[in-house]
Design a protein around this nucleic acid. Structure first.
Lengths: 331, 331
DNA sequence: ATGAAAGCGCTAACAT
DNA sequence: ATGTTAGCGCTTTCAT
C-alpha cells in the first residue's frame, strides 16, 4: 500500500482536496466546514496514519522550515554544543537543522552556501571564514535572513553574535602574569579570521599593560592543514625560547598543544602556566593546569535564534551586533 | 530582481522549459540539443547565476538527497564525530544531513522519525533507544532504507553496524585485573539499550574468568535525567565499598564520574584503576589514568554509508549485521 | 458548507 | 532539434 496523498484522502471520503486541506490545517472552523465533516476527516487521517508531504508544502509555500547551520566543523565541541542548543530551540518552533561543515575552506563554504540556498532554507546561522564575501553579500542584498557568530569581518555588514575577544584574552593573560609568568608565548592557528587577530591583540595588550616587551618571535602560527607537524615545530620552538607560559587562541590548537606538552614536555608542565581561549571540559581534570576563557554558549545560541526570528518577521534594514562577555575560569 | 526559474530562463532565451531542463541536467547530447543551443543556455545560466530549486526537483523526483541522522545527542563527541564523517562521505555523493537529537526519549524519537519521513528523507542513520518499535517496524515493512548503529534490539531486525561490546569490555576489565585490581565496581547509566547490557556482561565475564566473585552490589546504575546527583550518590557508594577499580559503560558517565573523582576523591586517584567504554581525547592527558575501549569511528561511518548505498540500490530482503572490533587503549 | 482550478518549479513521456 | 503537456502533493482564491 503506497503512501496516501491528500487527494487519496479526499477521494476515499468523497470530499474535495480543499476541504481536507482546510481541516488538516486547523482552518475547519474558520472556513465553515461542518463539525461532522471535520471529525470524519480527522478520524480517517488518524486511522490511515496520513502525514502531509512537507516537500510539496514547502514548494507551495516557499518556506521549508529548515535552517542552514554552517560551521567549520560540526564535530568541534564548540560548534556541536551550539548546534544542539539551536536544534532544541528551533524544534519548539517547528524548524530543523541542515548542517554543513566547511573546514575553513572558502570554496567549500561557497558550495555549502549554495547548497543551502538551492534547498531553500529559510535562514542561515553562519560561522564564516569571511574569505569569499561575494555570495554572502549577494544574499545580504536580497535580505536573506542570516546571523553570523564566532567570526566577523570588518568588510561585511551583518547580524553578529560575538564575544569580547580582545578583552577576554587580555584579562586571561593578565591572570597568568599575576601568577608570575614572565616570558609568555602565543600559539595560534593561522589567524585568518578576525576574532583570532583580536585575541592576539588582547594577548599583546596584557603584556604591554604589565610592562613586558612584546616579542614578535614568541607569537607562533600553526598551519591548519598541517596541524600535527606544524604545531610540534612551533611548540618546540617556544619551549626552546624558555617560555614559562603559553596562550592559545582556540580550542583546536589548545587541545593539540596540550596533548603535545604531555607527550614531549612532561617534565616542564609543573613550572608552566597556560591560557586557553575556549574552555574544554577536560581542563577540569587535565594536566597541565589551564586558565581558560569560556564562551557563553547558551547565550550565543539563544541570541542567534532571537535575532533570526526578528529578522525573519520584520525584514528591516539595520543589523545588530551583539558582543557577549565570556567567563574567565582561573585555574 | 526576484529569483529566476527555469521558466524565466526559457522565456528569456526563446526556448522551452524542456530544452533548458535537458541541458541543465547534462542530457543535452543524449537528447540531441544542438551544441549552439546548449552553449547559449549554459552561458546565460552562468550569467544570471541561476540555481535550480531543489525542492521542486525533490517533489518531482520523489527524492530529496537528504539523509536523516537520528542520535541521542549530536553534541556527544561520539555522535558528533560520526556525524562529521557521514557528512563528508555523503557530500561527495550529493547527499546532505538533517539532524535530530532525541535525548534517549522514546516519544521524541518517534517525533523525529516522523519529521524525517514527512520531509521525505531518502534514508536514515539511526542510534535508537529501541523503546518504541512501532514506527521503526512500519518503516522497515515499507523497505525504508535505514541503518542502525551503536545500539541494537533483539526484537528488531535491521541493518546493524555494531561493535563487539561484550568482548571489548571483558578484555578491558581483564587488563586492570592484571594490573592488580581486586575489587572492581561498575558504573553505568540505566542500561536501557542492549549494548550497555552487553558491556555489563563483559565486565562480569572478566571477573568470573579471573575467579573474582561478581558482587551485584558493586554494579551501580545512574539515572540519566538526574546524572548529577545520582552519579555522585552511586560513586560515593562504590568508594565506601572500598573498590580499587571502576568500569564505566559509556563516555557520558565516564566524563562525569572522572570529574567527580577529581573533585571529591582526589587523594584516591593514585591507587585506583579505571576502565572506560568509549575513548575520550582527554584520557591522553587527564588524571586519573583510564584504560579505554575506543570505538572504530571511521569504520562505523564508512560501513553505514556503504550499507546504506547497497540498500538504496537493490532493495533486497535480507539485512546485514556487522560487528566491528574496538581498539583497546591501555594506560 | 464545499468544490474547481490554478499554480509553486521542476522533469519527462510524447508529440512535431 | 525542440516544444507541449501532464503531473509530483500541496494551498488558496474564487465560485457555487
Amino acid at each position: 500500500m503506497k503512501k496516501k496523498s491528500i487527494k487519496d484522502i479526499a477521494q476515499d471520503l468523497g470530499l474535495s482536496k480543499t476541504t481536507v486541506s482546510f481541516v488538516l490545517n486547523n482552518k475547519g472552523d474558520e472556513k465553515n466546514i461542518s463539525k461532522k465533516t471535520q471529525i470524519k476527516i480527522l478520524d480517517y487521517v488518524k486511522k490511515v496514519d496520513y502525514h502531509p508531504n512537507q516537500i510539496a508544502k514547502s514548494l507551495k509555500q516557499g518556506q521549508t522550515n529548515t535552517i542552514g547551520y554552517l560551521v567549520p566543523d560540526i564535530s568541534n565541541p564548540f560548534f556541536a554544543k551550539i548546534g544542539r542548543l539551536l536544534e532544541d530551540y528551533f524544534w519548539e518552533k517547528g524548524y530543523h537543522l541542515l548542517i554543513g561543515s566547511t573546514d575553513e575552506n572558502k570554496d567549500k563554504e561557497t558550495q555549502v552556501l549554495n547548497m543551502f540556498v538551492n534547498r531553500q532554507v529559510d535562514a542561515l546561522i553562519v560561522a564564516s571564514c569571511f574569505e569569499n564575501l561575494g555570495m554572502l553579500k549577494t544574499l545580504a542584498a536580497q535580505r536573506f535572513p542570516m546571523v553570523f557568530f564566532d567570526r566577523e569581518s570588518p568588510d561585511f555588514n551583518g547580524n553578529y553574535i560575538l564575544v569580547e575577544n580582545k578583552n577576554a584574552m587580555r584579562s586571561a593573560v593578565d591572570k597568568v602574569i599575576n601568577k608570575g609568568a614572565k616570558r609568555i608565548g602565543l600559539l595560534s592557528i593561522t589567524p585568518n579570521v578576525y576574532s583570532l587577530k583580536l585575541r592576539i591583540d588582547g594577548y599583546k595588550q596584557a603584556l604591554i599593560e604589565n610592562n613586558i616587551d612584546v616579542d614578535e618571535d614568541l607569537i607562533r602560527v600553526v598551519e591548519i592543514d598541517d596541524l600535527k607537524e606544524s604545531s610540534k615545530t612551533q611548540l618546540t620552538f617556544l619551549m626552546e625560547q624558555g617560555v614559562d607560559a603559553i596562550a592559545f587562541t582556540n580550542n583546536q590548537i589548545t587541545a593539540h598543544a596540550i596533548w603535545l606538552m604531555n607527550t614531549a614536555f612532561r617534565e616542564d608542565l609543573d613550572r608552566m602556566n597556560f591560557v586557553s581561549f575556549d574552555n574544554l571540559d577536560l581542563f577540569d581534570y587535565s594536566l597541565p593546569i589551564v586558565t581558560s576563557v569560556a564562551q557563553p554558549i547558551k547565550e550565543i545560541a539563544q541570541y542567534s535564534v532571537d535575532i533570526l526570528e526578528e529578522v525573519m518577521k520584520s525584514n528591516k534594514e539595520e543589523s545588530k551586533r551583539i558582543e557577549l562577555k565570556p567567563r574567565l575560569i582561573e585555574r
